[in-house]
Each structure stands twice: as structure tokens, then as C-alpha cells.
Design a protein around this nucleic acid. Sequence first.
DNA 1: CATCTTAACCTGACACTGTCAAGTAAATTT
DNA 2: AAATTTACTTGACAGTGTCAGGTTAAGATG
Lengths: 195, 195
Amino acid sequence: MPDKKPYHHGDLREQLLQAGEAALSEMPIETVSLREIARRAGVSHAAPKHHFSTLGDLLGEIAARGFQKFVAALDDASHQTSLQTAEGRLMAMGWAYLRFAEANPAIYALMFGKIDRMTMTPNMVKHSMAAWSQLEDGVAAITGRNLAPNGALHVWSSVHGLSMLKAERRLPPHLMLHAAEENTLRMMIAGLKEL
Amino acid sequence: MPDKKPYHHGDLREQLLQAGEAALSEMPIETVSLREIARRAGVSHAAPKHHFSTLGDLLGEIAARGFQKFVAALDDASHQTSLQTAEGRLMAMGWAYLRFAEANPAIYALMFGKIDRMTMTPNMVKHSMAAWSQLEDGVAAITGRNLAPNGALHVWSSVHGLSMLKAERRLPPHLMLHAAEENTLRMMIAGLKEL
DNA sequence: CATCTTAACCTGACACTGTCAAGTAAATTT
DNA sequence: AAATTTACTTGACAGTGTCAGGTTAAGATG
């Protein structure tokens, strides 16, 4: 039952989130504004106020959803039945991480703080912590539980740094290749075993 | 001979850069505006136009100067006479990197693309490439020349990722410590030798 | 010295932003 | 049927980056 154009939108909160995600993926990130999102959702410029007290909150919720998808993607990657070793599973997570960042640059940027305008919503903090403990689990299978936090820090630093450098195009062209990524992931895991 | 308040400022370009740096270190980064910088330099809001065609250009030049100081800091650190091994020198560069990011969060953010409003000025590109080849030199002393690019990517990813995660406060508190940093740097170098 | 040119700055305007206050419409409750 | 509450709109405000055009003064030319 599709409502024609009722005064009460009924589903505006969800639509704003989707419009925001669409905007982030379609236009330069610095031009995404509250008003633009409202426009895309077909409501007046101040309508979002009722569902998100501020632009930062809206972006924060979008980032939270980003973390959910992110966790799901890494989970999928590490549970492929073909993977036999803990190292293989961690490697798969690393690849999934890099591919996620590549496929969703704007949302990834949001998730990891590139956008000053975002607020750290409770929801966003919650789901980002889920990502963290997911990573710790993957590392614990290699290093053991008590070394997992330090190991996870090492892993996250390496993969996060790599994908940031790529996304920001800070690398010389000859390093923008899969082979270079593979090398870095290998060194990362080699380092992990020296913990 | 201090000019009182001549119409022709004479030194406005330099003063704008300094005012911008001051603003970046004194106020939340998202509130730093062209007009604020002009205000601090004591000129009208459109005066900067003559020296920087856009806000992005001004920020780009500030980032370029940031890279200069950055290179100098890493150079100092790696040339301490007490350092005997190539690994020691690279480790010192890693520490210098982390301390620079900690001491100049806003400029560091600018340098590494956190601020959308910045333009990649030719000057900025030039000095950032200098930083890159400085790192490659440090790595080449360990891995040899031909492996240096891949090694440098690994090193930069790791250290950059770590300092970003710290700066963005994405780490659980127990990892915001020097010991955790030291661990990560050690693993990074251990991984490098497996290249 | 007088004049011309040009660089350096100022004033005012435009379209845009995020947010707030006040109004209106409709769904829900009483 | 009336009252209340929710969801949205309209209009305003202060702030932004940038542009056009005016103004001041310095330097060059005669």
C-alpha cells in the first residue's frame, strides 16, 4: 500500500538514512548537506530535525549502519569454508576490509572520522566496538587471548593505514596495486607472529 | 622598522599562513574558516583572495609547510648519533612520526587528508613526496633498494594507521599507551624483515 | 615633479549552509 | 467529538566561500 504523498511521511527516518547514503555515494562528500538529504527525501529542509537533532547525528547513524555492514562483510569473508588456518582467515578479513573501503569510500571515511561533521552516536560507538572485538577474535586464534588486544592494534593499524593511504591517493602509482596490498598483508601477519 | 598599519600589508601571505596555523591549533578544526583567518590577520574577509585563490589553496600551503616540518623532525630523529643500527633509526623515525601527529593534530589531519576543504597544491605534493622518499631511504637500509617501495608502504601503513586511530580516539583506553605503540612499532619492523 | 599603471586591499553582494521558532496539518488518545 | 501529540512546513538568523567592483597607495615612466 503505497501512500501517495501524505503529510505524515511515516517512514522519514529510514528514508533520510537511505537518502544520505545515496548522497554520500553519488556526490563529493563535502557537498553532502542536511538540506540536500532532505531534498532527496522530498521533504522540507527542516524536516529532519524531528528525527535527528543535528546533521552530525544523522551522519553518525549512517556510520553506525556502515559498521554493521562492515562487520557482516568481514564475518562472511572469514567464515568461508575453504579457509583452514587462522592466518588464512585473518588474511581474508584483511582483504574484505580493503575491499569494503574501496567499494564504499564515503561511508568508510565517515566511519573512520574523516568527516568532522559527524557525531559519535551511541549506536555508532556500539557497532564500532563490535568491529573491534570481531578483529580481536580473529587475532586471538593466532596469538592467544591475552595477546589479542596488542595484536589487534597492530593489525588494525596496518590495514587501516593502508586503506586510508589508498583512498586519499597518497601512494605513488606503482604501489596502487593488488600485489603491493598482498605484500603488506603478508608482512602484517608475519609481524603478528613475532608479538 | 615596524609598519604601523599601512594599506598595503606587505607581508600578508606569510601572516595568513601563520594565522591559519594558529587557528588550526587553537580552535576546533571544522570552525576554522577563511574569514576567521582573515580576522586573525587583521584584514578584510576577501583580502586573502589576492594571495590564495581559494580556501583550499591556503590550507594546501599550510599542509605543505607541515610536511616540511615533518620531514625535518624525522630527519633529526634518525640522525641522532646514538643510533647504531638501521632498525634503530627506523624505529626512531616511527616514534618521531607518532609524536609529530600527537603534537600537531590539526596540521597532521590536514596533511593526511582528513579535511575535505584542502586542495592538493603542487607545493604540498612536492613536500609530501619528499617525506615518502625519506621513508624509502630508511627502509632501504634494512631491506635493500629494490624492496624499499614495498617495505615503505608497509611501514607507512602501520604507523599512519596507528596515529590515525589514536588521533580519532578509536582505540579502547588500555591501548592508548606508549607500551602499545612500542609493541606495534616492533611488530612492524619484524614484519619488514620478512619481506 | 606629475602622471599612469598596477598590486594590494576593502565593501557589498550572492547563494548556500545548519539550526531554531512558530505555524499547520493529521493521526492518536481521551 | 474534542483534546493532545506527532510530524511536517515556513520563515528567519548568523555564518560560510567566493565574486565583482571600488579604493588606496606604491612603483614606473615621462
